[in-house]
Amino acid sequence: MNKEEIIEALKTIIEPYSEEVTALAHIDENTDFINDLKINSANLVDIVLDVEEKFNIEIDNDSMAKMLTVKATVEIIAQKLEAHAGQ
């Protein structure tokens, strides 16, 4: 999966948790889940769990701590997928 494909899959995950229609339409690497998409912090956990299920990876607490932006999340997913592939 390349970066663009990961962002596309991530968009589908994020959509149900944000009501910011304009910000959702313009999601890019710099989008911030809380500042831009106004996602409730309790729903960030749902995003982490959805990411785990969708990509079949495990997000440890240190990785979860960084998952506040699209950029950081895509990087973590790519890393975990790569580690997975190497096993």
Binding site: N40, A42, V45, D46, E52, N61
Partner: peptide, 17 residues
């Protein structure tokens, strides 16, 4: 709102927080 916005009974939810 929390009742409809968050399902904390979801598998692994509590363990993350």
């Amino acid at each position: 709102l929390a009742k409809i916005q968050s399902n904390w009974r979801r598998k692994n939810y509590l363990d993350k927080i």
